[in-house]
Amino acid sequence: MDDQAIIELFWQRSEDALAEVSARFGRYCRTIAVNILHSVEDADECVSDTWLRAWNAMPPARPNKLAAFLGRITRNLALDRYEAMRAQKRGGGEMELALEELADLAAPEKAGEGEISHAINAFLRSEAPEHRNIFLKRYLCLYSIKEIAAEYGYSESKVKSLLLRVRNRLKIELESEGLL
């Protein structure tokens, strides 16, 4: 069943929609959540909440790309939960490491998330596809360096080095935009 057919089920308020997204996107959303939360149980709750959010959002939403739509919901829910866990001194895992890696790109309080998103979006468009994807696998999907290295057949050192270079270029870009 393609994206539009699934979205149509949501619009018809058919519970088959939930079964379809669970079957098609369940593992994908769960992976995103596990990578952020480092906890299968918390991730599963995030994924369940994702279906609920999607159910409440469609209609009126009619996303063009369901994977991005659902993945973004899961990611935001997982980030919310991660911040709550951090407050309780839980957390750890790849998220902690990824945040440390992004420390040089830490935005000041006054910078708006929308402005930063816009600048990152434009920057990533200008990057080579492979560099962009490796960057996104790390900081969007929160895959470990090891997993990315295995995926691309690179050494972990090469992946780290590549990420460092992309981050450095992004830093220059954000600085030039006055966002750092």
Binding site: E100, A106, I116, I120
Partner: peptide, 30 residues
């Protein structure tokens, strides 16, 4: 760390096509 989190959240707002591109790779990996 708080502002790193802002950057982390901002990355999640990239365009759908780039999100899906990264996501499809992830799915392949799985």
């Amino acid at each position: 760390m708080k502002s790193s989190m802002k950057t982390m959240r901002a990355i999640g707002n990239i365009d759908d096509d780039m999100f899906e591109e990264a996501a499809s790779l992830s799915a392949a990996g799985v």
